[in-house]
């Protein structure tokens, strides 16, 4: 059976330590000054002393209905067999259509390769080898979970059954495979 890889982010457990940010850079050899993922703070919001703060992990949302794939003139952006959105840098001509189309601002032109770049769920080097993505493996707070939603025993399935989860910008109809659980932080 095909897999449906998803990432679930529990904001209550994210401490904004940026371990994921740095792990991603080394795993994916992302050039200086560029990032596939970052976790900026949202807040503090509210009025002293009643304030709140949480962190929002930003990266490709791995849409099932991906605008980037749809607009790509060279088919460099594509869904692989496990539903992961990837970029074939050899086919990419750097036209930036995908960057314009992405509602999540998740893509950039890699300064080194000249191709569009973004989170790949570490598919090639880790996930296809049975490992978790680099960010998930190093998450100090334990906020990140990754797995196959079609597997009833996966952490991600259990989390999504247990908690109310959201996707970002549902109004775009992109059906992301990255879910956010905000319980306890908003």
């Amino acid at each position: 059976m095909a897999k449906q890889y998803v990432m679930v982010i529990q904001a209550s457990k994210c401490i904004g330590c940026q371990a994921c940010t740095v792990a991603c850079k080394f795993q994916n050899e992302v050039p200086e000054g560029q990032y596939r993922t970052k976790s900026p703070a949202v807040g503090p919001t509210g009025t002293y002393p009643n304030v709140k703060l949480y962190f929002e992990k930003e990266a490709c949302q791995m849409c099932k209905n991906a605008p980037c794939v749809a607009v790509c003139p060279t088919k460099a952006s594509y869904h692989n067999e496990d539903g992961v959105v990837l970029v074939d840098s050899n086919k990419c001509v750097g036209c930036k259509y995908c960057m314009t189309a992405c509602p999540y601002d998740a893509r950039f032109i890699n300064e080194e390769t000249g191709a569009a770049d973004k989170c790949s769920f570490c598919y090639e080097h880790r996930v296809s080898q049975g490992e978790k993505p680099a960010c998930v493996s190093t998450c100090v707070g334990g906020a990140l979970s990754f797995g196959d939603l079609n597997d009833p025993n996966s952490d991600v399935k259990k989390l999504l059954d247990k908690y109310k989860a959201e996707v970002r910008k549902p109004e775009f109809g992109t059906h992301p495979n990255v879910y956010y659980i905000y319980e306890g932080v908003k």
């Binding site: 371990a19 740095v22 190093t138």
Partner: peptide, 10 residues
């Protein structure tokens, strides 16, 4: 649990 912070990663 096999994790390390941003500084360790760096």
């Amino acid at each position: 649990a096999g994790t390390i912070c941003a500084r360790g990663n760096a």
